[in-house]
Design a binder for these strands. Structure first.
Lengths: 152, 152
DNA sequence: TATTGTTATACTCTATAACTATA
DNA sequence: TATAGTTATAGAGTATAACAATA
């Protein structure tokens, strides 16, 4: 029989924290890349579509949100515009500003991509039991909340 | 008093699995970027140094290990070589093959980078209690082990 | 024929610096 | 002066395709 309480535990020792975090992050990126690819998008374009799903956003606002320089946003929106996913629109009340807005096909792509990505990411937690999954979500939430006080 | 068992829980609801995984991965990347930057490296170069810390590796082997095409490795090793971190060396017994090897300064950089990265990543789990940390590591190990049967 | 590695070319993403137009 | 956005330029990382040398 088994020594411990958890019959499904393997005999493999747990990974150290750093290795596990790196590999988990790699796994998440991998899922994002695979789902993006399925939708004919780059991972960054997928992220852009998700950011615009809630409505138009100014270029400077998007740059801050993505943590990149505003010049990088220009290129990013250029490429997304060339693919017919977004449009630049004027912002009433500030003639300097432009907002990135989803086109009709961009909105469709955003909806499909988001649903697909969410499902694929949730699948990653499938190996855990229901309780372990809940605890894992709680732990991730704590780590993320704590990091918001820090840099990054 | 409190309903549940854990008195330290905040009133903020847990994030959904997909959001939490994406943000956690972003956090890990962020740490990797910050540490790499501190050592004058790109994140991919840091990864290369760590991969070579155990000894020379063939180009094809590295490409498989990184999940990229062999042509990408050529450029990656070119840039690392230009910075004096690695060297190409012949492989006895196969005159087609070349191995990437750490230079003396590359080995120093690898050691320092790895120690720094490990510590910074472990710090991410500091907000968790000792038991929660152990459970978290176990859950990550299970997720990673399960994914190795899958694609990616 | 298959494998190892490189070169050539192109694209995405990013940064910095200089610029225009508006606030 | 400060902010919003663009252009120009450069570099990293990646892919594909064509190639050379060796197995």
């Amino acid at each position: 029989m088994d020594v411990g309480a958890e019959a499904t535990r393997s005999t493999v020792p747990d990974l150290d924290a750093a290795t596990a975090l790196v590999q988990l992050a790699r796994l998440v990126q991998c899922v994002q890349a695979r789902v993006s690819d399925r939708h004919g998008l780059t991972p960054v374009q997928g992220k852009l579509l998700c950011a615009l799903a809630g409505g138009p956003r100014g270029m400077a606002e998007l740059a801050r949100c993505f943590g990149v320089e505003k010049a990088a946003l220009t290129g990013l929106v250029d490429r997304a515009e060339r693919r017919g996913l977004v449009q630049r629109s004027a912002v009433p009340g500030d003639r300097r500003a432009l907002a990135a807005t989803l086109t009709v096909s961009g909105r469709e792509a955003a909806t499909a991509f988001h649903a697909d990505a969410t499902a694929a990411l949730e699948d990653l937690l499938a190996p855990l039991g229901a309780d372990a999954r809940t605890n894992f979500r709680r732990a991730m939430t704590e780590i993320i909340a704590a990091s918001e006080t820090d840099e990054c």
